[in-house]
Design a protein around this nucleic acid. Structure first.
Lengths: 227, 227
DNA sequence: CGACCATTTGATATGGATCAAGCGATGTGG
DNA sequence: CCACATCGCTTGATCCATATCAAATGGTCG
């Protein structure tokens, strides 16, 4: 096992001012809309690094963000992909345990953690939402563990279903991430991911009009493959 | 990939009354000592099951507890091992996402979740501690992910170092769990775990006086193997 | 068009799973 | 006290899924 990956860095921005209140949204998300500073990150630029102090919380407006960790020998593990509406960068400790990079150009709202904590102290709803957010994160990570003990086919199918879940048309998935990103998320190699996809296509379970667009043909069959 | 495991069940107890206040302990642990009902679980009995409502929080007094999940095809993944002092069973949602079984006979303190939540509402320290507990749990699970992408040798070494960390004499580890438990924790088979251990013994990195007792001989070498 | 990068495809190697047997401890009944 | 079954663990032989190495293909941008 040994998979090397290159990740380009770009100079990091620091949050400016921007955006307005959006009434009628849930307290935490609402607070971020209201208090958040809008920032744009270029493709492949780092949003924060592993081990850095977690002073901010982030919400994706557009684009895709990945969180990852690099082992000493260069292997990379991707923890999650975040898309429009997702909140990321929440830490319970003081520091980020993962780094975050923009996969595509990404617009992101940024709020000071201290501001949110202050708000949470005053508004119980915000606190409760942060608790729920942490809980969802925990569930996500636990699911990811279950992913990593499955076969290559099961992992890829899992990934497809996961992605399909979050798009409007639940059967057409436009992938924003490279095969390498997918592979590092699933703990496989790009070759295995690619081969598994063509296999699924040959079986008629999916269609690949282009390498970055996947259409789920037989949802039921896929769910079944998912073990 | 296909590993079947048998888990015997025993009739489940329901919490009775017991135990007294212990002054000078941190708020959450203290609250559990104070309010907790002592229960004893026989070897291999279930403490709670996946999907059951998470009405209680648990703290190990003695013995070892494992949390696990079973995939539809019988594969089992162990999420964690809990020993004296460890708190387990904390959920953010309403239901347990794992089941818990006693590996050895285990004495456990049990508190109603609702009681703790009530306490947390009044005492900010308890709330903060629950937050920290969730955070530590999240970190543990993330580390587990990093484990599962490593080689067999690295996983076994990781496990040994992890276990060694929690015992008084940090170099002699008395394992309370079977090879099958270890294998299911590491996402390997018993055969691979066994072989890896004998390999490490042949290299002089560890000693195996008995199959359940492991002595770390060359900590530094092990840490290096850990990648 | 040509250079470059991402992806696919092919050939081969290998780490760990699987299948099978042996071994040592623990317990049970005669 | 000793045969003997049982259970957990180790060891050996073989197989297979996925990694690795290498080359072909295709899409994008100058």
């Amino acid at each position: 096992m040994l998979m090397r990956t290159t990740v380009q860095n770009a100079s990091k921005q620091s949050p400016g001012r921007g955006s307005q209140a959006v009434p009628g949204t849930p307290p935490l998300a609402g607070a971020i809309e209201m208090m958040g500073a809008a920032m744009t990150f270029a493709r492949n630029s780092e949003i924060f690094g592993e081990g850095e102090p977690a002073d901010y919380l982030y919400k994706v407006v557009s684009g895709t963000v990945r969180t990852s960790k690099i082992l000493t020998d260069g292997r990379r593990q991707i923890g999650s992909f975040h898309m429009a509406g997702d909140i990321f960068g929440l830490e319970v400790g003081d520091d980020h345990t993962f780094s975050a990079e923009a996969i595509t150009e990404a617009k992101v709202l940024v709020v000071r953690r201290s501001a949110l904590l202050g708000l949470a102290a005053r508004d119980g709803n915000v606190g409760r939402q942060m608790w729920m957010l942490a809980g969802r994160e925990l569930a996500r990570v636990q699911d990811h563990i279950m992913l990593l003990v499955k076969t290559a086919q099961e992992r890829v199918v899992c990934f497809l279903l996961e992605m399909a879940q979050r798009v409007p048309d639940g059967n057409t998935v436009a992938l924003t991430m490279s095969r390498q990103d997918i592979a590092d998320y699933l703990g496989l190699t790009i070759e295995t991911v690619s081969r598994t996809l063509t296999m699924l296509e040959n079986e008629g379970a999916i269609e690949l009009p282009t390498s970055r667009c996947i259409m789920l043909r037989k949802r039921a069959a896929l769910v079944r493959l998912n073990s």
